[in-house]
């Protein structure tokens, strides 16, 4: 079972800050503590969702991490050295060349543990499609074995293994090549958040599909729809990982169950129960819905700790979490290393 941890300073419940009134929670060290705990518990990735590309106009949110996510990701990557790091970035807010560089750099800093949560333009699906293709082409500027560092010949890389995108499309014109080395995992992992609406881009390009629904029925529907869309796009079910948003409310005992009973205003399936009950439900849901795993949205820091401390060991006892030794995010997710288009005989230039 794959596990992701969605990072916030106080928890995903908008009222969570009232129980942890401490400005230090907004700082890097406290955020790193959360990520390190998730890593130690065996989580596969941390998600830096960043208000999904919405910029604040005149308010500050206690649910948003107060750091630009790709840079926070880079800092975290040097201090947490196993967990994957998936950061959101909007195609409306970065030039494609700049975004391709950011994530290629993050992938080098993290030694192959980076993922990009694609937040496409609201308005125009065409631009989002073209944008992801440009970024992918830039990431393919060098083949896997391009960098030879031949000191005697004075040859840093093999020029025949560099590819210039020369992209000229309806929306974007980008020459290339990218001025960053090839990623240790081929390319950073492409993630998409899916609720309702247009999923064509995710079906065509997504690898880590984050499913968001408030009910089991809704989740089942989205998962089935995505599997159909992926296959309709000419890809295999095994090319993607389906992971659902879960809001765990972990009770210490059956007696303590339902003490609160609130429905939290968080996008994801809320699961109230003891560690055993939650493990049961996760297991059932994964099977019924054909999911590979879950992204945990802890409503509070305390609930996050209980999930890590009580639910994860229960999942481990059931053999659902292996000891993971893989180094790259792609390997952890069990996704194949992408074959460079030049090696597969496809045309590289757009």
């Amino acid at each position: 079972m794959l596990l992701g941890y969605s990072l916030t300073p106080f928890g995903h419940d908008p009222d969570a800050w009232t129980k942890a009134r401490d400005r230090r929670r907004l700082g890097f060290d406290a955020l790193l503590d959360q990520v390190a705990a998730a890593e130690a518990a065996g989580f596969d990735f941390v998600l830096l969702a960043d208000r999904l590309g919405v910029r604040p106009v005149d308010d500050l949110s206690s649910v948003a991490v107060p750091f630009e996510p790709t840079l926070l990701a880079s800092a975290l990557a040097t201090r947490a050295d196993r967990i994957g790091i998936v950061a959101a970035a909007s195609t409306a807010q970065h030039e494609p060349y700049n975004l391709a560089r950011r994530f290629a750099s993050l992938d080098l800093v993290s030694k192959g543990r980076a993922g990009w949560l694609v937040v496409p333009d609201d308005g125009d699906a065409g631009r989002g499609n073209e944008y992801v293709d440009v970024v992918t082409a830039l990431w393919d500027s060098f083949e896997d074995d391009a960098f030879i560092y031949d000191k005697a010949a004075g040859r840093f890389f093999d020029p025949s293994k560099m590819h210039v995108a020369h992209h000229q499309g309806a929306y974007l014109a980008v020459r290339g090549p990218l001025n960053v080395n090839r990623s240790p995992q081929g390319r950073p992992v492409l993630a998409h958040l899916l609720e309702e609406g247009d999923d064509a881009l995710a079906a065509r390009t997504g690898e880590l599909l984050l499913l968001q629904a408030d009910t089991v029925e809704g989740l089942v529907a989205i998962a089935a729809r995505m599997i159909r869309s992926v296959e309709a796009a000419g890809r295999r079910r095994s090319d993607v990982r389906l992971v659902a948003n879960i809001v765990p409310v972990v009770a210490e005992s059956e007696q303590a169950l339902g003490e609160d009973g609130r429905i939290l205003p968080i996008a994801g399936i809320q699961m109230d129960g003891t560690p055993e009950m939650i493990a049961d439900r996760l297991q059932e849901l994964a099977t019924a819905t054909d999911l590979e795993g879950f992204t945990i949205l802890p409503p509070s820091l305390e609930m996050g700790q209980r999930f890590l401390g009580d639910v994860v060991p229960e999942l481990g006892r059931r053999g659902l979490i292996g000891s993971r030794r893989q180094e790259t995010l792609r390997d952890r997710l069990g996704l194949a290393q992408p074959v460079h288009p030049a090696a597969s005989g496809k045309e590289v230039s757009a």
């Binding site: 840079l71 040097t78 993050l106 800093v109 890389f157 020029p159 560099m162 960053v180 080395n181």
Partner: peptide, 19 residues
């Protein structure tokens, strides 16, 4: 010529300095 220069590729500076 690009392939003979180590400067051809580099980290994006802000990502590097954040680390």
């Amino acid at each position: 010529l690009a392939s003979q220069a180590a400067r051809s590729t580099a980290f994006e500076p802000l990502s590097l300095l954040a680390a």
